[in-house]
Simulated scan of single mutants.
Amino acid sequence: MKWDSTVRRSGAELDKMRKAGKIVAEIRAKTREAIRDGITTGEIDKIAHEIIDARGAKSNFLNYHGFPATICTSPNSMIVHGIPGDYRLVEGDIISIDCGAIWQGYHGDSAYTVGVGKISKVAAKLIEVTEASLFAGIDEMVVGNHLHDIGRAIQNLVEANKMAVVREYVGHGIGTAMHEAPNVPNYWPGSPGPKLRAGNVFAVEPMVNLGSADTKVLADGWSVMTADGSLSAHFEHTIAVTDNGPEVFTLED
């Protein structure tokens, strides 16, 4: 996507994005609390829908290009874009929750992966590394750094732990639309990219596989799986570049 880095969010716009981010953080917290052996992904989706309604916000996922739910629920070897429904979680699963909200026309977007009850050591390590890689990328979001410094930091941490960064699905700009220019790769694409400026806002979202980085899409046209059946994890935050460093809008309290 073509991107003009001189276009930056005003203080009033950032305030609306902070509010959207707080609603998304509440969705993160409440859905995380609900995840347990026996709950269905559809029941988790209902929790998110109720929070958005209660806060007077709008869903940015529901009906987006025809997506039929409020959040994405992607268990185990599903990477992203899983459709909530009758799948019932069992102890030992891991699940990625991707969620968002719109407040007064401005978007927040975030994701996390969590285990259901007791999970394997390798699954726990995958979750730990993926979340750490997100924050390694966020640490690069300072004025004067370059856009692709974010992905380089993510890739370096992931590959140091002998895991693989998904290439086909990347982060993005965010503001009055959920997906705006530019793309924010979770890897080093071979050039630094433009310099970061205060007021730039991005959704950074590494997706990390235990096996290869290869993916496949199921017949529903949405659900993205690891091609080799290995586990996958996904973390995302909405972050502004400021003169005082990165500000994460979607952090849980």
Score class of each variant (00 low, 15 high):
Ser110Gln: 09
Asp149Lys: 08
Glu131Asn: 15
Val122Leu: 07
His146Gly: 08
Ile154Met: 12
Tyr112Lys: 06
Leu147Ser: 01
Tyr112Arg: 02
Thr130Leu: 10
Ala153Lys: 12
Asp109Tyr: 14
Arg152Ser: 12
Ala153Cys: 10
Lys125Cys: 04
Ala123Gly: 12
Glu131Arg: 15
Tyr112Ile: 01
Met141Ile: 02
His148Gly: 01
Gly137Leu: 06
Ala123Thr: 02
Val122Asn: 12
His148Phe: 15
Ala111Lys: 02
Lys118Gly: 13
Gly137Glu: 03
Val129Gly: 11
Ile154Lys: 06
Gly117Asp: 12
Ile150Asp: 06
Val142Ala: 06
Thr113Pro: 06
Val114Lys: 05
Tyr106His: 00
Asn145Cys: 02
Ala111Glu: 06
Gln155Arg: 09
Thr113Gln: 06
Phe135His: 12
Val129Asn: 12
Phe135Thr: 09
Ala111Asn: 06
Gln104Leu: 11
Gly117Arg: 08
Glu140Met: 15
Leu126Phe: 06
Lys118Ala: 14
Ser133His: 04
Thr130Arg: 11
Arg152Trp: 13
Thr130Val: 02
Ala136Gly: 05
Ala132Lys: 14
Arg152His: 15
Asp109Leu: 09
Asp109Ile: 04
Ile154Arg: 10
Val143Phe: 09
His148Trp: 07
Thr113Arg: 08
Ala132Gln: 14
Gly108Thr: 03
Asn145Asp: 00
Lys121Gln: 12
Ala123Pro: 04
Ile154Cys: 07
Asp149Glu: 09
Ser120Pro: 03
Asp149Ser: 11
Met141Arg: 02
Ala136Tyr: 01
Asp109Pro: 07
Val142Pro: 00
Thr130Ala: 13
His107Cys: 14
Gly105Met: 11
Ala124Asp: 10
His148Glu: 06
Gly115Gln: 11
Val116Ser: 09
Ala136Leu: 09
Gln155His: 10
Ser133Gln: 02
Ala153Ser: 15
His107Pro: 01
Glu140Cys: 13
Ser110Ala: 15
Leu134Asn: 05
His107Glu: 04
Ile154Ser: 07
Ala124Val: 03
Lys121Leu: 12
Gln155Ser: 12
Tyr106Trp: 10
His146Asp: 05
Ala123Ile: 00
Glu140Gln: 15
Ser120Ile: 09
Val129Tyr: 09
Glu131Thr: 07
Gly115Ile: 04
Gly105His: 05
Gly108Ser: 05
Leu126Cys: 03
Leu126Gly: 03
Ala132Cys: 05
Met141Asn: 01
Val129Lys: 10
Gly108Pro: 02
Ser110Met: 11
Glu128Trp: 10
Ile119Trp: 08
Ile150Met: 01
Ile154Ala: 03
Ile154Phe: 03
Val143Lys: 08
Ile154Tyr: 12
Phe135Ser: 08
Ala124Asn: 15
Arg152Leu: 13
Tyr112Gln: 09
Ala124Leu: 13
Gly151Ala: 02
Lys118Trp: 10
Ile150Tyr: 06
Ala136Trp: 05
Leu126Ile: 08
Leu134Phe: 02
Val142Met: 06
Ile150His: 04
Asn145Ser: 00
Gln104Cys: 07
Leu147Pro: 00
Val143Pro: 10
Ile138Cys: 05
Gly105Thr: 10
Val116Cys: 03
Ser110Val: 07
